[in-house]
Amino acid sequence: MNSDDPRAQRTRARLKAAVLDLAAQQELTTITVSALAKRAEVNRATVYLHYPDVDSLVTDAMEDAVAAVARAAALCPLDAPRDRAPDPLEDLFEHVAANVTMYARMLGPHGSARFATRMRDRLTAELTHRFATGQRPRGWDDVPVEIHAAYLAGALVGVVAHWVSAREGPGHARTRQEAALAFWRLFRTGCQGLPED
């Protein structure tokens, strides 16, 4: 199948909209291909023609969200003060808060491992590129660039996953601003240059 064909693009768009609608109402593990086909008004064979399984469809449907998160993380000025999260990070947590049910489902215990991996990999690539183009703080030369980027990307995905699933109780960040600031203080420590010997 030619993925550039306008009919194929329309079908994929319908399938992505259908899976996001269903995921807003139920856990990912309970979404069936039959339900997807019915919601998208296509037959089951059409679903399989475009996607091998529900998880790959969900990951594709959330690609714009992954890109938005990666862009926001890559735009954070690493030298911003500790007491205020940078605007791109605030924007990132605002985006997550606006889609909290979806992120909780995607990153929760019954979520999509592919989505979490895709999000982490995209963030790692953005940070690796940033570090490779001279925007890496000094003092980390003894740590490979990709490892440094993967460490920070994994931390962000972990914090987002925790925040969307555990926003109640003592010791938890209740608002997106609290979560962004808490993450920024940790992230900034992992990005700041180490003192000279």
Rank of each mutant, 00 (worst) to 15 (best):
A8V: 10
A8I: 07
A8N: 10
A8L: 06
Q9D: 06
Q9K: 15
R10S: 09
R10I: 03
R10A: 11
T11Q: 12
R12P: 10
R12L: 02
A13C: 01
A13V: 05
R14E: 06
R14I: 02
L15V: 01
L15P: 03
L20W: 06
L20H: 11
L20K: 14
D21P: 00
D21Q: 10
L22W: 04
L22E: 04
A24H: 11
A24K: 08
A24N: 14
Q25N: 09
Q26P: 15
E27W: 06
E27I: 02
E27C: 07
L28K: 06
L28Y: 10
T29V: 12
I31W: 05
T32E: 01
S34G: 11
S34V: 08
S34M: 04
A35G: 09
L36P: 04
L36V: 05
K38A: 15
K38R: 15
K38S: 15
R39K: 13
R39H: 12
N43D: 13
R44I: 15
R44L: 12
R44F: 11
A45R: 10
V47A: 13
L49M: 14
H50R: 07
H50K: 08
P52W: 07
P52I: 09
P52D: 15
P52V: 10
D53K: 09
D53V: 05
V54S: 12
D55V: 05
D55F: 00
S56Y: 01
S56D: 06
L57V: 08
L57A: 05
V58C: 07
T59I: 06
T59W: 10
T59E: 14
T59A: 12
D60N: 02
D60G: 07
D60A: 12
M62N: 06
E63C: 09
E63T: 14
E63L: 11
E63M: 14
D64W: 00
D64K: 03
A65W: 04
A65F: 08
A67N: 04
A68C: 07
A68H: 10
V69Q: 03
A70K: 01
A72P: 02
A73P: 00
C76L: 03
C76W: 02
P77R: 11
P77H: 10
L78E: 13
D79A: 09
A80M: 02
R84F: 06
A85M: 05
P86H: 02
D87C: 02
P88D: 00
L89A: 02
L89W: 00
D91I: 00
L92C: 10
E94N: 03
E94G: 03
